[in-house]
């Protein structure tokens, strides 16, 4: 059969790389073929998720933050400082976390989706027109965030003026000065050229952009055992591949940025500098507990326990 797989990024970005690997594996180990649909070609992020729910698409990659409109608990990934800040621990965390591997799948299943895997896409960094060393430097800075109450709350707590803006307008708005900052993983800052219109990159370690691959549940349940194994194995191979691929991707992207724009400063905040940012996480947690659905508390607690567990390893 022909299986269709849509994602939120371009073919050569992280989600696209994962999808390409998945396609390669499936096609090598079965008679099925996989068609890939990069961002925008079948509609916006929400649209491709709905198409997967109704069975037009078999596979979809949507970041849990966006899925939050459907599964409120998934917004937990927007709570700052909940994920390990160091890359190696992070991969283990995704493989071992009870919240991710046991608590989320039933929530997705209720929406007709089989959660196949979640994986990190890279540390979220701020790019700004003025240097940032602490919350005081964000005071009155109009900072573009995605339309999500938790991100808005986060940046408000950081002291900035969170400004929602459609993605297509961000580049122009940074150029003309409507906004003075935005956040994204390094590869995305590089590929979308955000560095051309900002001057400083700040690594506060507050988050790692997480994404999830899902299948239409009815389709997945209806697969023969053999086919299901092909899918599961392809996901596993692609997961290992993407963790490997990202090892160094952040540094590589930052190097490319430096090369294209030598004047760009890249600052990694120290533990002490991060502390005031970390202190604001409480207010965001409160907001999450309010809007995060029935299992918000349980998921938050479990994620914290999971974090504890991998950190002590």
């Amino acid at each position: 059969d022909t299986w269709r797989y849509a994602f939120e990024e371009a073919l050569e970005e992280v989600q696209g790389k994962f999808a390409q690997k998945f396609k390669e594996e499936v096609e090598a180990n079965s008679d099925h073929s996989v068609q890939l649909f990069p961002f925008g070609t079948l509609g916006e992020s929400d649209s491709i998720l709905e198409q997967t729910q109704s069975g037009i698409l078999q596979f979809v990659d949507q970041s849990p933050g966006f899925t939050g409109a459907l599964i409120p608990e998934a917004q937990v990934f927007f709570v700052p400082y909940l994920l390990p800040q160091d890359e190696e621990t992070l991969a283990t965390f995704f493989e071992e976390s009870k919240a991710i591997n046991e608590m989320f799948p039933p929530l997705y299943a209720e929406q007709g989706l089989e959660l196949l895997t979640m994986f990190p896409e890279g540390e979220v960094m701020m790019t700004t027109t003025e240097p940032v060393e602490g919350p005081a430097d964000l005071n009155e800075v109009k900072f573009r965030v995605m339309t999500n109450p938790l991100l808005v709350e986060s940046y408000q707590a950081f002291g900035a003026t969170p400004t929602p803006l459609p993605w297509g307008e961000v580049y122009g708005a940074l150029q003309t000065g409507i906004i003075q900052g935005q956040e994204n993983p390094a590869f995305f800052i590089e590929s979308t050229k955000m560095y051309e219109v900002t001057d400083h990159i700040t690594r506060a370690g507050h988050n790692n952009f997480t994404t999830a691959v899902m299948a239409n549940k009815e389709f997945y349940d209806g697969l023969s055992d053999e086919d299901r194994t092909v899918v599961d194995n392809a996901i596993d191979v692609a997961f290992d591949y993407i963790i490997d691929y990202q090892d160094g991707l952040t540094e590589e992207s930052l190097e490319k940025i430096k090369e294209a724009k030598p004047s760009m400063t890249i600052t990694t905040l120290t533990e002490e500098q991060r502390q005031p940012f970390m202190d604001t996480a409480d207010s965001v947690e409160q907001e999450f507990l309010e809007i995060g659905g029935d299992q918000a508390q349980a998921i938050l607690d479990q994620l914290k326990a999971d974090l504890e567990a991998v950190s002590s390893q």
Partner: peptide, 18 residues
């Protein structure tokens, strides 16, 4: 400029938007 078509092209193809 600013041209939304060029921004989209720049992002999809990885070309400098400036």
């Amino acid at each position: 400029p600013p041209s939304i078509g060029m921004i989209i092209y720049g992002v999809v193809s990885g070309t400098s938007i400036s």
